[in-house]
Design a protein around this nucleic acid. Structure first.
Length: 848
RNA sequence: GCCGAGGUGGCGGAAUUGGUAGACGCGCCUGACUUAGGAUCAGGUGUCUUUGAUGUGCAGGUUCGAGUCCUGUCCUCGGUACCA
């Protein structure tokens, strides 16, 4: 589109306003203690999930959430709030390092270039961020406090009595040994089987494995010494406190299921011919009489101990075949159950029966005790396994209806179960647990699926651990040595060995007096766990956040951030990790809320025009830069909000962008001529058009309410209706028009400011920036309708419409309805059974 | 399999506590202005066998009245995957 063809000159005024906002620091948010700070203003903290600054730049999914929060932020400002609306970059991470390896450039250089490009793109969309609060997780001033928080976690333990994290110093004061203390730390070192990728040169968290495998990387299981965070101690609180949050129920459920709480019992089985017991976890202690065999995970430590000579070879072959498979493969590929007999037997504590012990890959070492009692009659998996290997199946639950008992897993009545017989499942569970406790054969147990968080990586582009070692013992780096930055390296290519890349920097690693540095780095999640705190006080060099700033920007409610908008993909990762860190900081008295994010909204994915997920290979990716160039930032903003409900998945339509662009052009032409002068349609006299006035005030009301509800699409359609009303009225009364521009401002800030400036000058009004204006109040008086169209139904079918006074009595309405020829015709000779009258809406005449 | 979200015109989507289904926009049709129109303006546009009937995935139910509430069922999308 050539310059002259553009329906309104956005390419001139959009950059103009952007540089003015920049120069004037229009959206700078003062903190307590600053001269411009107004303590009487309430705070509003609205946050976006900050982007990972990839080389590809912003995609159209970013501005969806960012525009939504921008509208809210601008609206709240106009309503007298001190609004914190910051932006930053999640700039550590594996892709940056991969890219650096490919191009031979240091990740710091490519990351800086990417951030610059992101900043340019964000500024081109006119977002009202306080750019002085911009942060990147790779900034040394930020890394310092990420490391400091890690050390706070490292120097804490979880006190079971108070259900809170407490400083390690309390244990030292009690005279605990170093070894005992290290076993309690919330950050600890453990040798555990982890996922190691030789070609990426790092271990990966369980939830990252599939993603990298799909990109063609190999992954294998290895026992390695790793740093872990004891998130499992918070499992119960992470579930319970979800209830205090205003999050989508679906996301809460996702987290709950991920944490996976189950109530049941642990049961000890004596092993025949050995003097030890194997413990199992079960949610169905009531079915203990039906346990006809036991299954251990192939990796269970007792397997080599109990396996008999004649079963040894088979067991070892089976163990090997399992070792190479991931948990996922074990699920996917083994639809058919597999396993082998160990030759050993366990004794069922409740009936002294000897039951065979098998190993099978359907039992996972990482959950429960890695061993189960199998009750094939009432568990689908055990049932399948028992059928395959012809193991005995014994009924111990009577179904409540006449369903087949084989494979019946729902609650019922206990049967063939000795002292439990006749009890409903719930009661039988309790009774059995009592029996187990009395006989010291088990106890009540609550089990979680959540595992401790594997927190170390072997890559280069992440925060180094502020830890040093001597004689196999780890120590915290003193505070004055933070931030600890990674040394420059020429080559950070993976070596193929699990040795962290930083170990190659021998000068950096080896310290005086025999100390060496920890060479692992933190995962990308570390930086995003607390960035919302740093925004409150981004350049503080004494603390990660000052008490004053924390105090002011925090809430009465459990969650600190008032509104958090982002994609659903972080449901069980970032959103869980951040909650965990926040709770530790809360326990230690560093923050005064127990949750980071009060209200969460997930924006829906934007699909390509073909209805498919946007991807380079499909060639359906829309670049926001192109849209801004062609239609302007306001059009992009408006379209992203007009597409449909924020939380919904929706396809992109370039025609739709044209549509909203045409709407903005109509607004422009309401006030401006082709020559760029204020049109003579704009008049100074007060508005005498009652209809126009009513539509305007309805618009002020509806747009405000819709913004509060995040219903941006219907807010925009109301503004379109209002624009059409101005067009129809022919004249554009200036006072009303400026009110309309004020309402439009959060959505299309450039266009509304530009028109407002022209119009104000032309009418010698004080040229007030709309961004600094108050949200207009609608006049109740202007909304009042005296007359309305009343729908008349006969037997529920629409037959006529009559024009009535709003507050007409039923008799008046009835009289007028029967005056209608149509109604007369349809009711003639029939008996009127009933009349339903909803004033202002409907009258239904029931006849027969 | 389980969990979650959702099925409304040719398309994106609107519809307080049940009360005119299809707001608003796209597309399409007709007309106006034009050398021109992929610009702008005015009007129209659910479907059909069009004085009327019918219509919110499908089948029932409640109600004066159902997109909305209830029961059953089918389909699509997203998440998850032997968690004992």
């Amino acid at each position: 589109m050539s310059e002259s063809r553009k329906p309104f000159p956005f390419s001139q005024f959009e950059p103009k306003w952007q540089s003015r906002w920049d120069a004037d620091k229009t959206f700078r948010t003062p903190n307590p203690g600053e001269a411009s700070f107004d303590a009487t203003k309430p705070k509003y903290y609205v946050l976006d999930m900050f982007p990972y600054p990839s080389g590809a730049g912003l995609h159209v999914g970013h501005p969806e959430g960012y525009t939504a929060t921008d509208i809210i932020g601008r609206y709240k400002r106009m309503n007298g709030f001190n609004v914190l609306h910051p932006m930053g970059y999640d700039s550590f991470g594996l892709p940056a390092e991969q890219y650096a390896i490919k191009t031979g450039q240091h990740p710091a250089i490519t990351t800086a270039a990417n951030i610059e490009n992101f900043r340019r793109q964000l500024k081109s969309l006119g977002f009202a961020y306080d750019w002085e609060r911009e942060i990147a997780t790779t900034d040394p001033g930020y890394v310092r406090w990420t490391q400091w928080i890690f050390l706070e976690i490292y120097n804490s333990y979880f006190c079971e009595e108070t259900n809170r994290a407490r400083p390690i110093s309390e244990l030292e004061a009690k005279g605990w040994s170093r070894e005992q203390i290290d076993a309690e730390r919330l950050a600890f070192v453990a040798d555990t089987p982890v996922w190691w990728s030789p070609d990426l040169g790092t271990v990966l968290a369980n939830e990252e494995v599939e993603e990298w495998k799909s990109k063609g990387h190999t992954v294998e299981r290895r026992p390695l010494r790793q740093w872990m965070l004891r998130i499992t101690k918070y499992a119960q609180r992470l579930i319970d406190e979800l209830d205090t949050l205003d999050w989508p129920e679906g996301i809460k459920l996702l987290q709950k299921n991920w944490i996976g709480r189950s109530e049941g019992a642990s049961v000890k089985f004596q092993i025949l011919n050995f003097n030890f017991e194997i413990e199992v976890f079960t949610t169905r202690p009531d079915t203990l009489f039906g346990a006809t065999y036991m299954v251990l995970a192939p990796e269970h430590p007792f397997v080599p101990v109990i396996t008999t000579e004649e079963n040894k070879t088979a067991v070892e072959v089976y163990q090997k075949s399992i070792a190479s498979k991931s948990d996922l493969d074990r699920g996917d590929l083994n639809k058919d159950k597999s396993g082998v007999f160990t030759g050993a037997y366990a004794v069922n504590p409740v009936n002294s029966e000897q039951i065979p012990i098998w190993i099978a890959d359907y039992v996972m070492m990482g959950y429960g005790t890695g061993a189960i009692m199998a009750v094939p009659a009432h568990d689908a998996r055990d049932y399948e396994f028992a059928q395959r290997f012809e193991l005995p199946i014994r009924q111990v639950v009577q179904p409540t209806n006449d369903l087949d008992w084989q494979g019946y897993t729902a609650p019922g009545t206990a049967i063939n179960s000795g002292f439990l017989d006749g009890m409903p499942t719930a009661v039988a569970k309790k009774k059995m647990i009592e029996w187990l406790v009395e006989n010291e054969k088990g106890q009540c147990k609550i089990q979680f699926k959540l595992r401790d968080w594997l927190f170390s990586r072997q890559r280069y582009w992440g925060e180094p651990f502020p830890i040093i070692w001597k004689d196999g013992q780890h120590y915290a780096l003193p505070d004055d040595q933070l931030p600890l930055l990674a040394p420059p390296l020429d080559d950070y290519k993976p070596s193929g060995s699990p040795e962290p890349i930083l170990s190659k920097a021998t000068e950096w690693v080896n310290l005086p007096d025999g100390f060496t540095r920890e060479t692992n780095t933190m995962p990308q999640w570390a930086g995003s766990c607390w960035y919302y705190l740093r925004y409150c006080d981004p350049s503080n060099s004494d603390r990660f956040i000052s008490k004053d700033a924390e105090d002011y920007w925090t809430s009465e409610k459990p969650g600190m951030v008032d509104l958090y908008v982002g994609g659903t993909e972080h449901a069980v990762l970032h959103l869980l990790y951040a909650r965990f860190w926040h709770k530790v900081l809360f326990d230690l008295g560093h923050v005064c809320t127990s949750e980071p994010f009060q209200k969460l909204v997930n924006q829906g994915l934007i699909l390509g025009e073909d209805g498919q997920k946007m991807s380079k290979s499909r060639g359906n990716v829309v670049n926001p830069d192109d849209v801004v160039k062609e239609y302007g930032a306001d059009s992009l903003r408006l379209y992203e909000m007009f597409m449909g409900p924020l939380e919904q998945v929706k396809p992109w339509q370039m025609k739709g962008v044209e549509g909203v662009s045409r709407f903005l052009a109509r607004v422009w032409r309401l006030a401006m001529t082709e020559e760029g002068e204020v049109s003579d349609k704009v008049v100074g006299e007060t508005c005498s058009d009652k209809e126009l006035s009513r539509v305007l005030h309805e618009t002020i009301k509806k747009v405000g309410e819709d913004i509060e509800k995040l219903n941006f699409n219907t807010a925009i359609s109301q503004m379109m209706i209002c624009t059409n009303a101005f067009t129809q009225a022919g004249k554009v009364p200036v006072k009303e028009f400026i009110q309309f521009l004020t309402v439009l401002n959060p959505f299309a800030p450039h266009l509304s400011e530009e028109i407002n400036e022209h119009v104000a000058k032309a009418f010698n009004l004080p040229v007030a920036s709309l961004s600094e204006s108050a949200w207009p109040a609608y006049e109740e008086q202007a909304l009042v309708r005296t007359e309305c169209e009343l729908v008349v139904q006969v037997n529920g079918k629409l037959r006529d419409r009559i024009w009535m006074a709003m507050d007409a009595s039923e008799d008046d309405a009835k009289a007028k309805a029967f005056a209608s020829e149509k109604i007369k015709e349809l009711t003639e000779g029939k008996i009127l059974r009933k009349v339903i009258y909803v004033p202002g809406k409907i009258m239904n005449l029931v006849v027969s």
